[in-house]
Design a protein around this nucleic acid. Sequence first.
DNA 1: CGCCATGTTGACTTTTCTCAATACGTGTGG
DNA 2: CCACACGTATTGAGAAAAGTCAACATGGCG
Lengths: 249, 249
Amino acid sequence: MRTVTGYAGRAMQSRGVHDLAIRAEPFGAESSHPSTPLLTDRQREQLVAIAAKLTLPPRMMLYQEGAAARWLFVSAEGVVKTYRDLASGKRRIVAFLFARDIFGLAERGHYVNTARTVTRVVIYRVPIDLLRELLARDPSLNVPLLCKVTHELRRSQRQTLMMGRRDAAGRLAMFLQMLRDHGRVDLAHADLLDVPMSRSDIADYLGLSLEAVSRASRYLEDHRIIKFQHRHLVRLLDSRRLDRLAARL
Amino acid sequence: MRTVTGYAGRAMQSRGVHDLAIRAEPFGAESSHPSTPLLTDRQREQLVAIAAKLTLPPRMMLYQEGAAARWLFVSAEGVVKTYRDLASGKRRIVAFLFARDIFGLAERGHYVNTARTVTRVVIYRVPIDLLRELLARDPSLNVPLLCKVTHELRRSQRQTLMMGRRDAAGRLAMFLQMLRDHGRVDLAHADLLDVPMSRSDIADYLGLSLEAVSRASRYLEDHRIIKFQHRHLVRLLDSRRLDRLAARL
DNA sequence: CGCCATGTTGACTTTTCTCAATACGTGTGG
DNA sequence: CCACACGTATTGAGAAAAGTCAACATGGCG
């Protein structure tokens, strides 16, 4: 199985473009906008200086559960999934990572999940040891990291909440909500939603069977809440009702 | 509804005893023991200096979802639960917090969950503004915080994994495992497990009905894996099989 | 001793899972 | 250009599991 380690093809070190960013809620800020950029220009430059910028194709493995954690990753573009394969043969997707998310946090020096690209992605790969040095030299970098991990914690808690639901349609609604609210900028296509992952990935994320996801999709279509234009493109017909369904938990 | 804010009865400022501690995996350490104390003596003293040490009775509300977040809490003793009440009338327990856990992380200045004591607890209440000042003066304090939040993130991801299970007995097994592995020190009573929370709390944590928890308990008893001595005390008859059941997900 | 909250058990309903068959659709090769 | 084949997705019927509602047991505390 080929991992990013052995994949040098499209790796590049371009350091001119500074799209390395982290997004989260600032720590303790009372009334700022949600999802503010967290890094100062200086911090960004410091990180870019030690990071490698990689462009990778879909379905590329980044690291495997249990492997020694040599890098921390910051996504700049595209979608990555982290997952665990269970003894039963089932797969649980722990998270989908989008632009400005970080992943690869280790536990005692080892990755806890497996990470794989879903779409073509652009990511920054930061060597852990260099990062640790950098953090020691400039402790202010801990702050954005802390914010981001706190953000991730809340996202995970939200996911736990979702998994507690009994109804497949409600889970799917929360998932679509998440996709919708993620980093939506172009309000021109506000009602069009990109769903880059497969049904199987969605099922593994929601803790449902493939069939249940399919039926839940149909339910949402029958109720005129969404409409699938293609397999990976959803038109949001009634965003309000989607929210109501998602909130009714 | 009386919260800790209006409860001065048993509050005290004793600063002689230094049981303020945080426990988690150190950042990036390859081969250290799990759950190492994270604070240096100096850091502990700095925190104790700005914190209030409170002793609180069971069922005491610490803060409510949506309230302005004035404090961060560090537990020293006892059990606290954080939860959210849902529109449906159901309650989801987000986490049980034990000694050396932190809680009260805010989102844009407001608590995201409600926190309430389960048992009598001893906690350190750290004013957020003073904490922020302290963090600015001594950025090294960010490191243990980052470790702890990362630890919490993994715990939450594990909980999500648990919620993905279909079988009540398996969920309960994972819960008992969590209780068992938490901070067990006295190996004398290694097979006795304190379960301080009510069945209802367990149900809300596991995302099951009260009845399902009850039946799952009976299942584990019937299979000679556990034995309830009292409502809040479990004897672990077969810890290995508990682990197998918990792992079979 | 008896009340009230907590916990257990039983009967029936609801929902998803599972397994199997069928449809879609994308890229390839004739 | 069309037909085929493969992976992906949908639909249907029956099984399994927890949810719900209601009755009953337990246990702590005044």
